[in-house]
Design a protein around this nucleic acid. Structure first.
Length: 547
RNA sequence: GCGCCUGUAGCUCAGGUGGAUAGAGCAUCUGCCUUCUAAGCAGAUGGUCACAGGUUCGAGUCCUGUCAGGCGUGCCA
């Protein structure tokens, strides 16, 4: 990358100027103002402080020692208090643009990850009911982070942890059975703390019409376990299909039950006990989380003999490490942030680096309609489900909206805006640019423009240069978004890029009688289309041919 | 009480490792479709970056404190 080249050359120039600099001190950035060039470094300012020299004089000495390839850098100048600004050569821009066109769908990919094995676990909602909007954020952010990591050369596995062992599943079974008994006219009592939602009434109704006869004939002793089994699988199937409809797919669905059955939970607890991190008190078994900075010790086995979620989480983590992942990413709702210290503690207790566990904490989501928070769906009367929202606004809008914001901020999903099929809706702004380019390319073909590799050097207009520069930022942007686990940088960039393109489009005609210039501009359009499509793909949003 | 997150234009939000004159969309106002998609473009209005200190040549960004909002603080999940 050009940034690395500039950094290297600057360090060499520093040596020639007789200055030693910690490479970490050499900061490079893209100036906000075009007048300040394409790249800028603050070395002189940083070093001047250490050496108590005049920063501008130091900058001059550094620039004097520069041996830059004129094919890459056109001009170097000193500005302000001592910034060194670089202006890249036109030739460099055209060469990079040609590289972009050659890479096509692969443009933006890199091998920064070096094949590092990363697991991203997300959603992991109990299979006891439908997904609601709050879960959507985790689903899309987890999915987008996985896509970003894949794109930057990581070996990524997406996993969903299915809590199918505890008493939640038990309650699910009892709740469904109660609804069935209700339908069958048998006496029933709704379980305490059971799932009251309408969706289970509907589910029970469906279950009854499918296999009500068979179930009714079962001996009472078998009925509950059979209903529980069927409901668990049924709910899980619904989760899978809801997520698939939103283009969220997993490589693996990991069952908590498997940890129980394999003895993995007991095994992990034994290991911790051997290492001295376990004790018993009041009939319960505790993990000494306080030894690792947690506020209090945490129960792993309740006095009733049942393991806690935490105990299963420990065994699950051990299993993940056992599968050879270098890094485990957990995408969680911020309401679970309190669990982070105990997880890191458990990792350390078992001899793993706690820094290899990474937690992405997502703040709450609110649905806003006509300026007010929507808590319940008008259709079903209960919480608004992801399925309902999808039917309402469509998957592209959902994905884009949920990925627009930083995870750390609370997020208001503006239903009225999301429903608008107009320029006010940011998704369409970006998609429109893509569709518009498709249309231009089609128009050129219709006009019989003989497509040939364009002479990119014909792109001399300022709007063209601005567009090319924006396109060339993409790989670095992707790398940064992946490293920071911040998918929201992609929509921000795409909106800016689309704006720069629309501006170019209004200033200059692409298809004209000048065949050479037309071809160069068609190449520029195609490059823009490629970057928009690649960016949208990272978000899982479609890039439409027409709108 | 303690812990985590947040506070930037009227509204919703961006602002990579501290940098040069703080940005976008919506809203309001003014222009632009016989020419490749007006779901578009250009321009205008709009800011004590919650507040107070501190570090620094330089702070929206880092540190401390205060205020406000959200979440958490279970042998719940």
């Amino acid at each position: 990358m050009i940034k690395d080249y500039l950094r290297q050359q600057t360090l060499r120039a520093l040596q020639r100027a007789g200055a030693q600099a910690d490479p970490a001190l050499v900061g490079f950035e893209r100036p906000k103002q075009a007048a300040h060039g394409d790249w800028s470094t603050n070395v002189a300012l940083a070093l001047a402080k250490q050496r108590r020299e005049n920063p501008r004089q130091l900058a001059e000495a550094i620039v004097a020692g520069m041996e830059l390839d004129p094919d890459l850098v056109e001009k170097t100048e000193i500005a302000g208090p001592g910034f060194i600004n670089f202006r890249l050569s036109q030739r460099w821009l055209y060469r990079e643009l040609a590289g972009l066109l050659a890479l096509g769908p692969r443009y933006g990919r890199s091998d920064i990850g070096n094949g590092k094995r990363v697991q991203v676990e997300f959603v992991s909602v109990n299979p006891t009911g439908p997904l609601h909007v709050g879960h959507g954020r985790g689903a899309f952010v987890g999915d987008a982070i996985a896509r970003l990591l894949q794109c930057t050369g990581h070996d990524v596995q997406k996993e969903y942890y299915v809590n199918d062992a505890g008493n939640q599943i038990d309650k699910l079974g009892r709740s469904v059975l109660a609804r069935l008994n209700e339908i069958w006219g048998r006496p029933f009592e709704f379980p305490e703390g059971g799932y009251q939602g309408e969706y289970l009434k509907a589910y029970a109704k469906g279950l009854d019409s499918d296999q009500g006869g068979r179930l009714q004939a079962l001996p009472p002793g078998e009925l509950l376990s059979e209903v529980t089994r069927i409901s668990r699988e049924g709910m899980l199937a619904q989760l899978k299909s809801s997520l698939k409809d939103l283009k969220v797919e997993f490589d693996n669905w990991f069952s908590e039950t498997s940890l129980v059955e394999s003895g993995a939970i007991k095994g992990s607890l034994d290991e911790l006990e051997q290492k001295g991190y376990i004790y018993e008190q009041d009939g319960a078994v505790f993990f000494k989380a306080t030894e690792f900075g947690d506020e209090k010790d945490r129960v792993v086995v309740k006095s009733g003999g049942e393991h806690t979620y935490f105990a299963a989480d420990i065994a699950y983590m051990k299993d993940k490490f056992g599968r050879g992942f270098d890094r485990l990413i957990y995408v969680w709702g911020a309401d679970h942030h309190g669990d982070v210290p105990r997880m890191k503690g458990a990792a350390r207790a078992m001899g793993h680096d706690p820094d290899s566990l990474e937690f992405i904490l997502m703040q709450m989501v609110r649905l806003i309609e006509e300026g007010r928070e929507v808590k319940f769906s008008k259709r079903s009367g209960v919480i608004v489900t992801l399925d309902e929202l999808r039917d309402d606004v469509g998957p592209d809008v959902m994905r884009y909206f949920f990925l627009m914001r930083r995870s750390e901020s609370q997020f208001d999903f503006d239903l009225d805006l999301a429903r608008k099929h107009s320029d006010e809706n940011p998704v369409y702004y970006v998609q429109y640019a893509h569709a518009r380019i498709r249309s231009i390319l089609a128009h050129a073909a219709e006009k019989g423009v003989a497509r040939a590799a364009g002479e990119l050097a014909l792109l001399q207009e300022p709007e063209e240069a601005a567009l090319i520069k924006a396109l060339l930022e993409f790989p670095e942007l992707v790398a940064g978004a992946a490293a920071a686990r911040e998918p929201h940088r992609i929509p921000t960039y795409l909106q800016e890029l689309a704006g720069i393109f629309h501006n170019f489009y209004h200033q200059h005609r692409v298809v004209t009688d000048d065949a050479k210039l037309s071809n160069a501009r068609l190449d520029l359009c195609d490059a823009t289309r490629t970057v928009i499509a690649n960016g949208l793909a990272l978000l899982g949003v479609s890039a439409p041919e027409k709108m």
